Every structure is written in structure tokens, then in C-alpha cells.
Computed example of a mutant assay.
Amino acid sequence: MNLSPILKSIKELEKAAIKINDQRKEIEASKGWRTWKKYQMKVRDMNDRLMMAERAFTDRDGLLGMTWHKHLVSI
């Protein structure tokens, strides 16, 4: 069994998570209304990317045997 593709995908997801977390920290570190206004489009972009990432972990048909459970990551 070759796990290389999934390991590569996990690494890419980790890089993306680190990048967006760094961007979040940059925005949170900015203080004041004028600075916040400067980051308004970055915040919108970040929210859109996070929303799309979350949607990628859902399936309309749900999990096998649990069709009501739409999120594919189950703990």
C-alpha cells in the first residue's frame, strides 16, 4: 500500500494551516480602526478560504450508515 499521496496531502494541508494562522496573527496584532480597515479585504478573503476548506470536509450523502452525519471528519 502506497501512502505517499495521502502523506503529501497532509503536508500540504499543514502548510496551508500554518500560512493562514500566520495571517490571522498578523491581523490580530494590528491595533486601531485605521489598521483594521487596511486588513478588511484580507479578513474577508481568509473567512472565504476557511469556509471553503470546511465545506471540502462535508458530503451531501453523509457517512456510510450515518447519512445524517454530513461532516467527513468524525471523532
Rank of each mutant, 00 (worst) to 15 (best):
10 I>M: 09
10 I>K: 04
10 I>E: 02
10 I>N: 04
10 I>V: 14
11 K>N: 10
11 K>S: 15
11 K>M: 08
11 K>C: 12
11 K>D: 11
12 E>M: 09
12 E>W: 13
12 E>C: 08
12 E>V: 06
12 E>Y: 09
12 E>K: 07
12 E>Q: 14
12 E>I: 13
13 L>C: 13
13 L>H: 11
13 L>D: 11
13 L>W: 09
13 L>N: 13
14 E>G: 08
14 E>P: 07
14 E>F: 11
14 E>T: 12
15 K>Q: 07
15 K>T: 10
15 K>D: 12
16 A>T: 02
16 A>W: 00
16 A>P: 00
16 A>Q: 07
16 A>N: 05
16 A>Y: 03
16 A>C: 04
16 A>K: 00
16 A>R: 02
17 A>M: 12
17 A>W: 06
17 A>V: 04
17 A>S: 15
18 I>M: 06
18 I>L: 07
18 I>N: 05
18 I>D: 10
18 I>E: 09
19 K>I: 05
19 K>R: 13
19 K>W: 01
19 K>Q: 12
19 K>M: 08
19 K>N: 05
20 I>Y: 02
20 I>C: 00
20 I>K: 00
20 I>A: 03
20 I>T: 04
21 N>I: 11
21 N>M: 03
21 N>R: 02
21 N>L: 11
22 D>V: 00
22 D>P: 00
23 Q>N: 08
23 Q>S: 11
23 Q>D: 10
23 Q>R: 03
24 R>F: 06
24 R>N: 10
24 R>V: 05
24 R>K: 13
24 R>Y: 06
24 R>S: 07
25 K>R: 09
25 K>C: 05
26 E>G: 09
27 I>W: 03
27 I>G: 05
27 I>T: 02
27 I>E: 03
28 E>Y: 12
28 E>M: 13
28 E>K: 10
28 E>I: 14
28 E>S: 06
28 E>T: 12
28 E>F: 14
28 E>Q: 12
28 E>R: 13
28 E>A: 10
29 A>L: 06
29 A>T: 11
29 A>N: 09
30 S>W: 14
30 S>M: 15
30 S>F: 09
30 S>G: 10
31 K>H: 08
31 K>A: 10
31 K>T: 02
31 K>Y: 09
31 K>C: 06
32 G>P: 00
32 G>Y: 04
32 G>S: 00
32 G>W: 07
33 W>H: 13
33 W>C: 07
33 W>R: 12
33 W>L: 09
34 R>K: 06
34 R>Y: 08
34 R>M: 15
34 R>E: 05
34 R>G: 14
34 R>F: 12
34 R>A: 15
35 T>Q: 05
35 T>S: 15
35 T>N: 15
36 W>R: 14
36 W>A: 14
36 W>K: 12
36 W>T: 08
36 W>V: 04
36 W>S: 13
36 W>Y: 14
36 W>D: 09
37 K>A: 08
37 K>S: 14
37 K>H: 07
37 K>E: 10
37 K>P: 03
38 K>G: 01
38 K>E: 03
38 K>D: 04
38 K>H: 09
39 Y>M: 02
39 Y>K: 12
40 Q>W: 03
40 Q>H: 11
40 Q>G: 10
41 M>T: 12
41 M>C: 09
41 M>S: 15
41 M>N: 15
41 M>P: 01
42 K>H: 05
42 K>Y: 01
42 K>T: 01
42 K>Q: 06
42 K>W: 02
43 V>N: 00
43 V>K: 02
43 V>W: 04
44 R>T: 01
44 R>E: 11
44 R>Q: 12
